[in-house]
Design a binder for these strands. Structure first.
Lengths: 205, 205
DNA sequence: TTAATTATAGAGCGATCACTCAAGAACGTG
DNA sequence: CACGTTCTTGAGTGATCGCTCTATAATTAA
């Protein structure tokens, strides 16, 4: 083999991560189809040829954006809380409170990219919508798994319904993302989070 | 004046209401920008010239669709429940249960048109997104008004927060619409509705 | 019948879409 | 230096976008 780490040819004039961040902001704000390649190249500071050489086509760029977003602090806080918190109640309390803090944060577009970036798509881009829908439904399944475990460990009463609770919290979180895009503040969303937690099952006595 | 009700010239070959219904289904399913004029004319059974003569431009057609939708049973059930139910608790219980029944109904596209038809728009169509956002926020204000009245009439305890409750139910409903578009069934959404109602303030004793 | 009016069908407008290509510039290696 | 390789540039591809125009068909009024 020839040297694996040797760089040959003209070096790229742009930072790949920086360009990806610019693309993320656009897709986050306007969604997949409402963001044109022309807007992307302008925001990323590169020409179409460079974009297609570095990221493939528009769909591949979007998937890479979603993948990177899901591994960023803003995009991964749900999975992190599910893993780190010792109790399911603590995990969902933390998820809701962090969503209230993160979704309206003015340092990035409002709401969750995964929830809102492919709501309106043409027939020929249905695959992109399905891609995000699968991510959301996988998240729902993770909620249910965490709640089922909590019930088996005795944290949740036997009468509780882990699947229904998971769907409920998924709906609340998706609604909070929508409300943030409509202008809701962290204060309002925190109140929403607190009310949402009132639905947590209480042990029957 | 000449006769006001007299029809002159060639009569239209299509039914305006039927055409509007076809346009509604498309906008409901794919949203404003992801629905092309070509798809609209094909579904409505008319040519571009007829569409523009009868409805103005694409934006005017969309606004008429939203207006008509808001006056249909499917689009008006929230306002109807707020008016008809004697208690605020009864109103929100009915709203949530009807949302669970209506949003996944296979006789029309899933979810609520007002919630999801203009999530992803280009910069030049920001006005359309603002149009629906204003409708959603007006709905939120109606929730708050209804809850404030309930508190003044003693239905809600003094410690309750009408604004926070309104925002909470708005988020839940928007989340239920999203979940319906992701495949949630009436059964699942009914469970979500029941859990959501657990947050209703209880009188302190 | 003739004129006035309105709706139709179908071609086609400029602009923008995602995307590609050819030419040249910037690098490491001989 | 020349060579191979990679990246940048800028023009330009066909397709589709929202929308308009013209010619003609269908109706009522005179």
């Amino acid at each position: 083999m020839s040297g694996a780490g040797v760089k040959r040819g003209r070096p790229p004039a742009f930072d790949r991560t920086t360009a990806l961040t610019a693309a993320t902001r656009l897709f986050w704000e306007h969604g997949y189809e409402a963001t044109s390649v022309g807007e992307l190249t302008r925001a990323m500071g590169i020409k179409p040829g460079s974009l297609y050489a570095a990221f493939g086509d528009k769909k591949s760029l979007f998937k890479e954006v979603v993948h990177t977003y899901g591994r960023s602090p803003v995009g991964a806080f749900i999975g992190t809380a599910l893993e780190e918190e010792p109790t399911a109640h603590g995990a969902f309390r933390r998820i809701l409170c962090e969503a209230a803090a993160v979704y309206p944060d003015p340092s990035h577009p409002a709401g969750c990219l995964t929830i809102s970036a492919a709501t309106n798509v043409t027939v020929q881009d249905a695959e992109v919508a399905a891609f995000l829908r699968d991510l959301r439904n996988a998240n729902l399944a993770a909620f249910e798994t965490r709640l089922t475990t909590a019930q088996q460990q005795g944290e949740l009463p036997a009468a509780a319904n882990p699947r229904a609770l998971a769907a409920y919290f998924a709906a609340v979180i998706q609604g909070m993302s929508q409300r943030a895009r409509d202008g809701a503040t962290t204060m309002e969303l925190t109140e929403t989070a607190e009310l949402a937690l009132d639905a947590w099952p209480q042990a029957q006595d």
